[in-house]
């Protein structure tokens, strides 16, 4: 740590996080207290602008890609009302990106449901997070954190000289933390996949067996990579875990079914 805890609590009275509901979850926005955020955190107009910018981005992605919405562009494609070639470039680009990730993960991550429908929910949320971050940059904000349903992207510092940090929830006791990790450059994004919150929403490994992992957290340079690989490792088991850590610049903390842990070297306490 670069700073002692006295610096953390040193006279700065912040604000509660700004929250937005979208995509069936809650997005928490925090603006850092760094000098680069002119007028912040006491500028209520800027807080409102940040909230609106993030809400607009998420609504845009949700309107286009949600399979819960009958009228979404992707729902229309899946019903055959709209040909893929006639769909907007955003949808086609998103689909192409998902297919690229399918190839990078040996097919473990896939944008196709068992029934053949295109399901881009595996990357839409993280793309929305990335774009929401760009929207915050567009407002002149350089220090912020975005947490959408447990997937986090940060920029700048929490307070001058102090990194944003992420706690990793313990899937065996969801009120407890497994780890607290500074999100230092270049690993500024973290995503966690698991089966605890939405039931077994990633049911099995590719060969039909139950995933050996209860929860997988991936720290990466961008939120899409972190999110896709967390999903792929849950679904692909140990082979996907080892292939991912060998191929991509990431750190991984995985919780096995019995509660024991696997971690890459950068997440060991003595590596700090």
């Amino acid at each position: 740590m670069r700073h002692s805890s006295s610096v953390v609590s040193g006279g700065y009275a912040g604000h509660p996080a700004i929250t937005v509901e979208s995509m069936g979850t809650v997005i928490s926005i925090r603006i850092g207290a760094a000098a680069g955020n002119a007028g912040f955190p006491h500028d209520e107009a800027l807080r409102a602008a940040a909230r609106q910018a993030v809400a607009d981005v998420f609504r845009g992605w949700n309107d286009r890609f949600s399979l819960y919405r009958e009228g979404s562009e992707l729902s229309r494609v899946n019903r055959g009302e709209l040909r893929l070639t006639q769909a907007g470039s955003e949808l086609r680009d998103c689909y192409a990106l998902a297919l690229a990730w399918r190839d990078r993960t040996d097919g473990v991550f896939t944008p196709h449901r068992a029934d053949g429908a295109i399901d881009l929910s595996g990357i839409v949320k993280s793309l929305a997070i990335a774009h929401a971050g760009e929207a915050l940059y567009g407002l002149g904000l350089r220090d912020w954190s975005l947490n959408a349903g447990g997937d986090i992207l940060v920029a700048g510092d929490q307070t001058p000289g102090l990194d944003w940090a992420a706690a990793i929830v313990d899937p065996l006791d969801r009120s407890a933390r497994l780890a607290s990790v500074p999100l230092r450059a270049p690993l500024r994004a973290v995503a966690t996949s698991g089966s605890a919150e939405r039931g077994e929403h990633i049911w099995t490994t590719v060969d039909g067996a139950l995933s050996p992992f209860r929860q997988v957290t991936v720290f990466g340079r961008d939120i899409v990579t972190a999110d896709v690989l967390a999903t792929a490792i849950i679904a692909g088991g140990r082979p996907a875990l080892h292939r991912s850590t060998e191929t991509f610049p990431i750190e991984v903390l995985a919780v096995l079914r019995d509660g024991s842990l696997l971690a890459t070297p950068g997440l060991r306490a003595d590596s700090a």
Partner: peptide, 30 residues
């Protein structure tokens, strides 16, 4: 080798909790 290896809970990186503003976990609903 960036292999993930077995690790005990008290060996995992734990920054000062006072600075943690975000929690990462499996996606939660509203």
């Amino acid at each position: 080798s960036n292999r993930a290896a077995p690790i005990l809970r008290d060996e995992v990186l734990s920054a000062q909790s006072a600075s943690v503003a975000n929690v990462s976990g499996a996606t939660y609903t509203t």
